[in-house]
Amino acid sequence: MPTFVDLFCGGGFGARGAVRGGGKPLLGIDAWDLAVQTYQANFPTAEVIHSKIEDTDPILLAKKFKPDVLLTSPECTSHSIARGARPGNESSKETAIGIIPWIEAMLPRWVIVENVNRMKKWGRHNELISSIKSLNYEVSDLLLNSATFGSGQARKRMFLICNLEGISLSEADLLTGMTPQYKCAADIIDWNAEYKSAPLHKPSRAKATLERAERAIQALGRNVPFIIVYYGSDYAGGWQSLAAPLRTITTLDRFGLVTWHDDVPYLRMLQPDELKHAMGAGKEHSLPVGNRREKVKLCGNGVCAEVMEAIFRTIARTDAKKSEQAA
């Protein structure tokens, strides 16, 4: 059972996948108090620290924790395309370089770095990889779509999968032995819940929202439910079919569900529990603290559980093979 320390642990969505893949959480660290509370509620046997990693001494913690895997999800907002043309905060980006002292102190067999793919355009991306390689790690730089691994969300992210075993990994290696079941946006909707919907066509409704809905209705026909996509750059008319995986969840409340009653369209926003489902967390994972907006942010900041589960299954399989060869 590979143990892990979780930097930038968030609400524990990635950790949920790691546990499903056979991992055991030892320590989580995050600067957001609600993330810390959520992580602790879901993984009560792990120690959880409310702090920025730069304000925490990895050498001191390395005396207590000897993880097999170091999970890291450095701040991604300054790399993300969702911020548009606004300049990134360089100190936010620097949190990625900040993981190096943790690797040096703990020297885990495996290091996982997750971030948005645009991180590759960051001027210090190659420096980060070179720094990890200088510690004798083999680094596999992968772009993975969570939908490929059976998620109900199409979330494309960069994963650096680093190991001391000299093993180079591909997406195909992570999918070995898996038969992911295709999921779509319809699968993450709670169709039995009685969430309040309002008529789509009401006086206060924004013109842009109505235009997006009309484009969807024109394409799909009446009485077919669909998703309206709010905010961010959208190149598909501002809507999506429920037959495709949900588009990437962000920290903003951006997805509305249009349903029909007696040929009249109604609109409601997707709820945190539905977004949690799209993150792959499942019913066993709870969101016990925070208001609606904060729970949406927890989801948007998370790592899809399905991808991390596949990574941990690969780690377990690789470690088992090594043990067999040693015997």
Score class of each variant (00 low, 15 high):
K63R: 10
R109V: 01
F65E: 01
G88V: 08
L27M: 07
N89V: 15
A96S: 15
S78C: 01
I100Y: 08
E90T: 10
P74Q: 12
T95I: 04
G21T: 12
I29Y: 07
V69D: 06
S92F: 03
P74L: 09
Y39Q: 09
L71M: 15
L71C: 10
E90C: 02
P87C: 06
K24L: 14
G21W: 03
V36C: 11
L27P: 00
G84C: 02
W102I: 06
R109K: 09
R86A: 13
V19E: 08
E47R: 15
R20L: 11
L71N: 11
D68T: 08
W102M: 03
L34F: 01
I59W: 00
N42F: 10
P87E: 15
S51F: 01
Q37D: 04
D57V: 01
G88Q: 08
L61G: 01
F43L: 13
T77L: 03
A96D: 09
P101Q: 14
T45D: 05
T77M: 06
W32T: 09
N42V: 12
W32C: 03
P108E: 06
V19L: 03
I81G: 12
D30W: 02
P58V: 07
A82P: 01
G23L: 12
I81D: 12
I81L: 13
A62K: 00
K24F: 14
E94N: 12
E104H: 09
D30E: 04
A62P: 00
E104G: 04
S51Y: 02
S80W: 10
A31T: 11
E75D: 11
G84I: 05
E75T: 13
Q40C: 03
S91H: 08
